[in-house]
């Protein structure tokens, strides 16, 4: 017997633009809402500087949200996600929520478990697939063992908290004829037990890794920071972003924010150049959904070749400059 299940999608917006990941979790929520006739409620934590709430809520409703609840970020502390727990828990209780969805990023993977444990719900992280059986059972799939195995989970609790991997679900279609409700939520000022001493932010030079259509990534085989200089020439001529394996980051060759993989970023570009990267599962978990992987490695037995579309066994220090020359002969437009 189908039960009414309301779905809560939790968003934290830093600007008035919705990210693709924000839209992707609405899609994920629709898979449940469509089967169970539930409403999709978006709980949106919003910067006080953002003034065009109207176009934001219009956009969310057009994408499938039935109710938009705005919470001003002045009531919480961004550096302490514990301050987000009470507002989200209140929404879960008041709106009869049975499924809560977050993006699997810094925000979601920290806040979601807090919400699950506080409200005694099941927690499933890094979800890639959602299925609602006719009997009403929810089945969630995710990868584990560094990306080598796939797991299907059936929650048994009445509250299920899910973090959704990026670039798996497609954003929903827009339908501006849809109607929806907009609410400005009042919450108590949340006190934080953390004192923020300092914030260090890396200058984002050039194209963001997560949204680039071409990524040039280097691993142990690149040998050091100088190797990445060679890769940057290729990235530049293709309007791409630079990425790295965990090893290259741990060795200090490049910033940690360049890390692609299970404990780094998930990217899904059109072309992913994996240079000097062996292809360990935890790295593939971060780039496996790329449309095409081009692997360049001196080791013909490297596991990366079984995931790649094109492979070259050879020295990157000779091949990359040759590729740059070849691409420059025929300028590409992304």
């Amino acid at each position: 017997m189908l039960q009414k299940k309301n779905i809560l999608v939790v968003l934290k917006l830093d600007s008035s633009e919705l990210e693709s990941s924000d839209l992707e979790i609405i899609s994920a929520g629709q898979l449940v809402a469509d089967k169970n006739d539930g409403s999709i409620i978006a709980l949106v934590f919003l910067d006080t500087k953002i003034s065009n709430k109207e176009s934001l809520s219009e956009n969310l409703i057009a994408r499938g949200v039935d109710e938009v609840d705005f919470v001003s970020k002045e009531y919480v502390s961004e550096h302490d996600l514990a301050t987000y727990v009470a507002p989200v828990s209140t929404a879960i209780e008041e709106k009869e929520v049975e499924v809560v969805l977050f993006t699997h990023n810094n925000f979601g993977s920290d806040l979601a478990p807090r919400i699950a444990f506080r409200n005694r719900g099941a927690i499933v992280t890094g979800t890639e697939g959602i299925e609602v059986r006719n009997s009403g059972e929810l089945l969630l799939t995710r990868v584990c063992f560094g990306g080598r195995a796939q797991q299907t989970i059936q929650p048994s609790s009445s509250l299920v908290v899910i973090t959704v991997r990026e670039k798996i679900f497609e954003p929903p279609e827009k339908n501006y004829k849809r109607q929806g409700k907009v609410v400005n939520m009042w919450v108590d000022q949340q006190e934080s037990s953390l004192t923020l001493l300092e914030q260090k932010r890396e200058e984002s030079k050039g194209i963001r890794l997560e949204s680039a259509s071409v990524v040039v990534a280097g691993g142990r085989g690149v040998g050091g920071p100088e190797g990445f200089e060679i890769l940057s020439e290729l990235a530049k001529c293709l309007d791409g972003a630079l990425g790295a394996s965990r090893v290259a980051c741990d060795l200090g060759w490049v910033p940690h924010s360049w890390q692609v993989g299970l404990s780094g970023k998930t990217v899904s570009p059109n072309i992913y150049f994996a240079v000097g990267i062996s292809g360990a599962s935890h790295h593939l978990a971060g780039c496996g959904t790329s449309k095409a992987i081009v692997a360049i490695n001196v080791d013909k037995d490297a596991p990366i070749f079984s995931e790649a579309r094109f492979g070259i066994v050879g020295e990157f220090s000779e091949l990359i400059p040759a590729l740059v020359e070849e691409f420059k002969k025929n300028p590409q437009t992304s």
């Binding site: 584990c144 195995a149 299907t152 059936q154 692997a295 995931e307 790649a308 094109f310 066994v313």
Partner: peptide, 18 residues
């Protein structure tokens, strides 16, 4: 609060063009 109902290691098919 949940159970694993399936766990498997998908086969890797090699389609790489060298």
């Amino acid at each position: 609060k949940q159970a694993t109902v399936d766990l498997f290691a998908p086969e890797r098919i090699n389609n790489c063009q060298m």
